[in-house]
Design a protein around this nucleic acid. Structure first.
Lengths: 234, 234
DNA sequence: TACAGTGAGTGTACGTTGTACACGCGTCGG
DNA sequence: CCGACGCGTGTACAACGTACACTCACTGTA
């Protein structure tokens, strides 16, 4: 899992198998995405991916992805590759909004993304393309400020996606229940908390249904943040 | 690592050792915090904590914390316990701002917090106290909206802390270099990216020093977000 | 004083993870 | 025809979380 600083996957080029290889970066990453999409990030182990590709041993993958971290890097960047960056419109707010919404959509398709993206800096070509696009929309600011503002938008997007991912994880832990099943599973914990009576505001929220805006409300949250940014623009 | 849904640490009370125990939840959590503070979250393994307490086997801890997840829960909540919640002032913005800044200070002391908090919902007594306080500041809103806004503030705080924690992790991977050493270590990667010339805005940022506002700039970012929230208040 | 009971900590063992290393098979260039 | 090299396999190891059975030492009761 450890890795020398200069040895990111992007440094070592894909070994472009001269003879007929059964494997390739693309096939490996695709298989890993499929597993992670279906069963969550921790299910995408080296062994699991290898067997999904017909290889009897995880070691086959190491020629192509270098390490587990390398595979994760490639997975993250592949997901970023699904986010398109249309031509800049000249309206920073519209461009940033579109970028965030596209990112959000991608994270809904790949619920593991938000969990994994924190493990290392986003230096893949697609991640860089997105960062570059975001910085370009804010290029009238000094670079450090532009990066700061872009980071705020990303924090909001990833943070909100994480809350949803956590709910999904809990759901997986319980089984695969419906919304009502889930509520029933979490109820004893909440009830115990409510019973103490020590958290009146939390209780009020729980009594209200324990809901917060997430999927549906993300555009609204994004607009609120953009309002705050707009007020600071020169 | 798996856990039945109803068996959070908070459910099973601390076994209040009738006879003289060498161990206790408090001592265990305190030792784990110390290790995590000094060497990062992954260093705080069960074995490591056990030996730090003089126990020859990790199994000693299981009576007190139930599982590794239980220990993490307790660590997170202990960290939350360091954040104080003064009497509400009646000014939602001042209260929320103070809460976020206190949270931020805590996350600077415990850089592992932001990494670990995503692994499970914050249901410890101290985390609930903080959530309750934040909801109280926004109690003039309907509960779901209040939770949404509070979540935005927390996303920003944790997300920003995560960026710093990631830099720290990279620093640890390289050794324990100074700021200049770090810049030198990351330079080859950045140079390779810059050399492609494909990311002009990113390059401009890198040429500018590759900086973004984090520790120093967090209050500013927080104010921007609060501006956006204020514009939506009834 | 004797004895059962309980509670604290130990030791051993298992399954799973990532991955290092050495080996066999195949195809190609000389 | 034959060595070299690309490609995948098999075996093995350390570290992780943790289940299970166990040994002490102390305590309350008879």
């Amino acid at each position: 899992m450890a890795e020398a600083p200069g040895s990111l996957v992007w440094s070592l080029p894909e070994p472009p198998g001269g003879q007929q290889p059964n494997l390739s970066r693309d096939r490996i990453v695709r298989a890993a995405l499929k597993i992670a999409d279906a069963e969550g990030a921790p299910a995408a182990t080296m062994r699991r991916v290898a067997t999904a590709l017909g290889s009897s041993t995880p070691m086959s993958l190491y020629r192509y992805v270098g390490s587990k971290d390398g595979l994760v890097d490639l997975m993250l960047d592949a997901a970023c590759g699904e986010v398109s960056t249309p031509a800049p419109s000249g309206d920073w707010r519209a461009d940033l909004r579109a970028l965030a919404l596209a990112n959000w959509d991608m994270m809904q398709r790949h619920q593991w993304f938000a969990e994994l993206v924190h493990t290392r800096p986003p230096l893949g070509p697609n991640a860089l393309r997105l960062t570059d696009y975001g910085l370009g929309a804010l290029s009238f600011l000094d670079p450090a400020t532009a990066m700061t503002y872009l980071g705020m938008v990303n924090s909001l997007t990833i943070g909100t996606a994480l809350q949803l991912a956590e709910e999904l994880k809990m759901r997986r832990r319980v089984g695969l229940p419906t919304d009502d099943d889930l509520r029933a599973a979490v109820k004893p914990i909440h009830d115990e908390i409510v019973a103490t009576g020590r958290y009146p505001n939390y209780n009020r929220w729980a009594a209200d249904g324990g809901r917060f805006h997430n999927a549906a409300g993300f555009p609204l949250m994004l607009d609120i943040l953009l309002d705050g940014l707009a007020a600071r623009m020169p």
